[in-house]
Amino acid sequence: MKKKILYSLLAVSLIGLVLVIYIQAGGNPINKNKAKENLTAYLKETYPDMDYEIKRSVKYVSIDDSYRFRVLTKDPLGVETIYLFDVYNYKPFKVFNDTIHKSRIDKDSSKKLNAQAEQYIKTLLQKKVPEVNQVDTDVEVYNNDATKWTPQLKTPKPILIMLEIDKGNVTKEQMLQQCKTMQELLNNESIDYYMTEAGYRSIVNGEENYEYVSFTPKQKLTISDIN
């Protein structure tokens, strides 16, 4: 009787071990399905006229805790191309690597527009937050039709705005107010951004230290958002 119980426990343990190894190697099958559903919705929204097929083979990438999907596209002439898409293995299962988008970027035009956007936004924010000393953006366009960046310029994707701000002696309450002010300035200009990351720079014991605050256009900032 004891041997049967022991064998049963060993069998259960072995099954559990196999399941753990399977999930670590291939990812959670439930999450994999949710990631595919989110990728399907993303493709329909981003490329509504594209003829595509999500291939069945999916690779789990443990470093990013994500799934790598292969998407087969077909142009009007019937030419087929495979593109890779990466989707996180956790809510909200965000698509974070779109190689179709990357393949279409005009790097030279994007570089020029970034420089213009960074100067415009820096000047805008310094009017009320003079401590802003550096702005970086990731403006990306597909062709060279746009020669000048303005807040009204519509790009394939909303931009990320990264700020470096001298912290000085400001308190967390003052940081919160500054971020609310910058959010209002950006929104009033109708700048199409999906997130702003503000890095408050200070020198501690001779070393650089950063405190980060991130906000989206519609986010209601509170003191809990200040790290």
Rank of each mutant, 00 (worst) to 15 (best):
V87F: 14
Y88H: 13
S13N: 13
K34E: 04
K74M: 07
T155S: 03
E197Q: 08
M175T: 02
V141F: 03
I161T: 01
L125H: 01
P92N: 15
I23K: 12
N33Y: 15
I161H: 00
K36F: 09
T222L: 06
K167M: 02
V61T: 10
I159P: 07
T137A: 00
E211N: 09
N187H: 09
M175S: 01
N227I: 06
T73V: 14
D225H: 11
I165A: 02
E37D: 14
G78H: 12
S62Q: 11
L6E: 06
N114G: 02
A115N: 10
Y60F: 03
K172E: 07
M195R: 09
K74A: 11
L14Y: 13
S103P: 04
D136F: 02
I100P: 06
Q116E: 13
S62P: 03
K127D: 05
D138L: 06
K220G: 05
D64N: 06
E164F: 03
K112P: 03
L160F: 11
D108I: 12
K172G: 07
V12F: 07
D192K: 10
V12I: 12
D86M: 15
V135N: 00
F85V: 12
K102M: 08
I226Y: 06
K180V: 10
K127I: 06
T137F: 00
L39I: 09
Q119E: 15
F93S: 00
T181M: 09
F215I: 11
S110N: 07
L113T: 02
C179H: 10
D138P: 02
E131G: 01
N97W: 12
P29E: 14
S110E: 05
K34L: 10
L185K: 07
K157H: 09
D64C: 03
T73A: 06
S214M: 13
I203R: 05
Y210C: 11
P92H: 14
K180H: 14
I5G: 04
S103I: 08
P48F: 12
T46I: 05
D86A: 15
V95R: 04
D166E: 13
V141Q: 01
V204T: 11
V87W: 05
I159W: 01
P29C: 15
T99L: 03
K107P: 14
D138W: 11
T222S: 13
I159E: 01
I82Y: 15
K74V: 06
F96M: 12
N114K: 06
Y210Q: 11
Q134Y: 08
E184M: 08
M162H: 03
S8C: 13
K148P: 04
S224K: 00
K32R: 15
E37I: 11
S109C: 04
T137H: 00
Y194H: 08
N28D: 07
S190I: 14
N205D: 15
T137W: 00
D64G: 02
A198H: 01
Q116W: 07
V139F: 03
Y88K: 12
E173F: 12
I203W: 09
G78S: 09
P156N: 07
L153R: 06
P217K: 11
L39A: 08
L163V: 04
K111Q: 08
T196L: 04
K218C: 07
L176N: 05
Y212V: 11
T73W: 13
